[in-house]
């Protein structure tokens, strides 16, 4: 029997050609990550004597983490934010926008999708400013409510930052759903119409089931993007009031650069990396299994 030709073959020369890329990846990515993991087990401080003379402290950071109530609160807020604003808010908003724009006049569709995509491309500072101007005292919402003292951002901080995040991500979700809707053959809808199905029945029994895989993919992607959305929350609330919006990335930053506990912040960062790695892995496996 000769060697099978229809299975992947490895030519040793390819390792030589791959080596430069591998070297760069190790030096600039794997190296720092491993170093950051190590820092999570030290007593490194931003200032003071431990800024230079830090040492390995074993599990003491981990023990502190397990007894840190703010960490648990922060973890919970992260889950609420990522699922509420990303998986549900941004995905739903994008789906509703795509469905609403599907059959409308080309001009209206063009303007609306341009606006939604603009919201996505805006820098986080602009988004934060727009939403603060809308939701704080003397903002649009308080004017509409007829009470200039009303501060929605202060009273419902998590709700407002979640809305701002969903608003900013809706454009990309909408683009995904618009593409998926275009891929649904028109004659499926026509066949259902001929059976006498109402628009609502067509939506629930034809369109949504056919969009299922896109919904899952989009929800995961929105979660990933929401998870990384540190800037928006930090600019709008700085994690407050009273830790109400203190999600893990914000708490990590506060620990490291406000409270100067770089070592502990590195450990929190490790937790963030693990969580986003899980999300990312989920995303990759879901999108792969569709093919």
């Amino acid at each position: 029997m000769s060697v099978r030709l229809d299975i992947p073959r490895v030519d040793p020369v390819s390792f030589v050609f791959l080596a430069p890329a591998a070297l760069l990846l190790c030096a600039l990515f794997m190296g720092p990550v491993i170093y950051a993991i190590y820092l999570g087990f030290t007593n490194l401080q931003l200032i003071g004597i431990h800024a230079i003379n830090y040492r390995f402290t074993g599990m003491s950071n981990v023990v502190f983490l397990l007894h840190d109530e703010i960490f648990y609160q922060s973890l919970w807020l992260t889950i609420v934010f990522v699922i509420g604003s990303g998986a549900i808010g941004a995905t739903m908003l994008g789906l509703v926008l795509a469905l609403a724009l599907q059959g409308c006049m080309p001009f209206v569709r063009w303007i609306s999708s341009a606006a939604a995509i603009l919201a996505w491309t805006l820098p986080p500072t602009t988004i934060a400013f727009v939403w603060m101007a809308t939701s704080t005292q003397s903002g649009l919402i308080s004017l509409l409510a007829g009470n200039r003292q009303f501060d929605l951002l202060y009273s419902h901080a998590m709700l407002v930052v979640s809305l701002a995040n969903a608003w900013s991500l809706a454009g990309i979700a909408m683009t995904m759903f618009s593409a998926a809707l275009r891929n649904i053959p028109g004659d499926l809808i026509e066949a259902a119409k001929l059976e006498g199905a109402s628009l609502r029945q067509i939506l629930t029994s034809i369109t949504l089931p056919l969009l299922k895989s896109t919904i899952v993919t989009c929800a995961l992607l929105m979660m990933l993007m929401t998870f990384g959305n540190f800037t928006l929350i930090y600019l709008m609330t700085g994690g407050g009031p009273a830790n109400d919006t203190n999600i893990l990335p914000v708490y990590t930053y506060l620990q490291g650069f406000k409270f100067h506990n770089l070592g502990y912040a590195a450990l929190l960062g490790n937790v963030v990396v693990i969580l986003s790695a899980v999300l990312g892995g989920l995303f990759v496996s879901v999108t792969k299994s569709r093919r």
């Binding site: 026509e190 066949a191 119409k193 001929l194 006498g196 199905a197």
Partner: peptide, 8 residues
């Protein structure tokens, strides 16, 4: 179409 009783 749904009220024409036509199948396609």
């Amino acid at each position: 179409p749904g009220r024409r009783d036509a199948a396609m």
